[in-house]
Design a protein around this nucleic acid. Structure first.
Lengths: 214, 214
DNA sequence: TGGATTGGTGAATGAATTATCACCTACCCG
DNA sequence: CGGGTAGGTGATAATTCATTCACCAATCCA
C-alpha cells in the first residue's frame, strides 16, 4: 500500500473527509469540504479530491452526491469489509413466495465464509419449523442460511429449504415425475411429495449453513 | 425507548437504510430506497421516510441529499462497532489450556446476539471433536461459540465445552464429589468422569451457540 | 356507509450537488 | 527565464435529489 505522499492541502481534505464520515455517518459534499477549509470555489475542492482519487486514497462515484468513499485498506473504519447482513424472514405462506423478503423479522450478521460461493444478495436467514432433519443436526427454530434458487437448479439429494403452508422446513430434495419429494432424515417423519406447481409447497433454495443460539 | 411500532413497509425502509449506511458508508437517497423496494415514485418513499422520522427512528436534514441519519438510541453499538471477530482455536492439549488462544486457526465474524450477555473478549470458537451431543444437534466439526469460564461458574446440567486429550467436545457438565461428570446425549456414548484436577480434562466454558457450514 | 390511515403512481419544480471552462497566483526546478 | 505543478476564484452547465401537488386503492374502524 505504498501510495504517493499527500501535499499539505490534500492531507487536510483527506482528514476532513475521514472525520466527516466517522462523525456524520455520511461523506461530505464538495461544498462542505470547501467550507471547512475556507475555500470559496468548489472547483478547488474538486481538484484536490481528484488528486486524492488518483493517488488512491479515496474512491468516487461520478454524478452522485457525496459519492466519496475511503479506499480500502485505510483505517479500522473501512479496513474490515462489512460482513454480510442477511434478512431474517418473517411469516410467509407457500402460495406467496414473493413475500419472502417482505417482512423481515430482523437481520443477522454472518461470516462471509458461510455463504460459500453464493452472493450475499441472494441469501436469507430462515427459521427451521420442525425437527425433520434432526439426524443432520438441524432442529426446530434453528437459523438456516438459505441461498435462494429456483428448484430447477437443485440437484437431487441436495439439502433444501421449503415453505409448506406457513412453515419453513429443511429437507432433502428430489425431483421425479413432475413431483417434489422432500425426504426427512428423522424418525417419525415421513416423506412428503408435492406436484411441482402445487401452491402448498414452495422451494426457497439450498441450505448453506445452520446456526443456533442455545 | 418506546417508539411507536413500524408498519411492514416502514420496517422494510428502515432496514434498508440501516444496511445501506452500514455497507455503503452513506445513507441512501430517496430514489435508491425506492429502487430497492421496487417503488416507482419517490413520493411514496418520501412519505414512508417521513413516518420513520415522526416515529423517532431516524433524523433528517431538510434539503440535503442523503440527509438521513439513524436516531440515537438505535443502538449506535451494532452499527458503528464492528461485529465481534472471535478466534478459532487450533490444536490444543488438555494439560496446556493456557495455549487456547495461542495458535488461532483463523477468526470468525459472528452476530453479537450469539454472545448473549458474554463479552466478546471472553469468547472463542472451538471445533466440536465428536458426535457426543448429536441429540442436541451438535455434530463433529461444528463450530462452537464458547464463553470461557472457570468450571466453578458452571451450573450442573449446563452445556459445556471441554478439552479431553487433544479433542474438544461438548457435554453436559455435572460436578459431584470432586469429579467432573460429562454426560453425552447420544446413543453409544457413555458418561465420562474426571478428577477436578486431572490433566486429562480441561473445562473451557459454556457453549453459547452452534454453527455449521454444510 | 363513510372517513381516516397507509402506501402508492406520476409529474413538476426548484434547491443541492457535481462537473467543467477560463483564467489567475505562487512555487519549485532545470 | 521558461515551464510544470499545485491550488485558487468565479461562473455556468448538467445532473441528482428533495419536495410538493393531484389523485388512486386498500384496509381498518366507528
Amino acid at each position: 500500500m505504498t501510495r504517493p505522499a499527500l501535499t499539505p492541502s490534500q492531507n487536510r481534505v483527506f482528514d476532513f473527509i475521514r472525520s466527516h464520515i466517522r462523525d456524520q455517518q455520511t461523506p461530505p459534499t464538495l461544498a462542505e469540504i470547501g467550507a471547512a477549509l475556507s475555500l470559496r470555489s468548489t472547483n478547488g475542492v474538486h481538484k484536490l479530491v481528484l488528486a486524492l482519487e488518483q493517488k488512491g486514497y479515496i474512491t468516487r462515484t461520478p454524478m452522485v452526491s457525496r459519492g466519496i468513499s475511503l479506499a480500502e485498506s485505510d483505517d479500522p473504519f473501512t479496513l474490515t469489509e462489512a460482513p454480510p447482513l442477511l434478512p431474517i424472514v418473517g411469516k410467509v405462506r407457500s402460495d406467496r413466495p414473493d413475500q419472502l423478503r417482505r417482512n423481515p423479522a430482523g437481520a443477522l450478521v454472518v461470516d462471509p465464509r458461510f455463504l460459500g460461493r453464493a452472493g450475499a444478495a441472494s441469501c436469507i436467514i430462515a427459521i427451521s419449523g420442525d425437527d425433520g432433519m434432526l439426524e443432520l443436526g438441524i432442529r426446530r427454530s434453528d437459523l438456516l442460511l438459505v441461498e435462494e434458487t429456483d428448484w430447477q437448479q437443485l440437484l437431487n439429494g441436495e439439502l433444501s429449504a421449503a415453505i409448506i403452508g406457513e412453515r419453513i422446513i429443511a429437507r432433502r430434495f428430489d425431483f421425479a415425475r413432475n413431483r417434489f419429494h422432500l425426504r426427512s432424515s428423522a424418525r417419525g417423519y415421513t416423506e412428503e411429495s408435492f406436484r411441482a406447481d402445487s401452491p402448498g409447497c414452495h422451494i426457497i433454495g439450498r441450505v448453506l449453513s445452520v446456526m443456533r443460539k442455545l
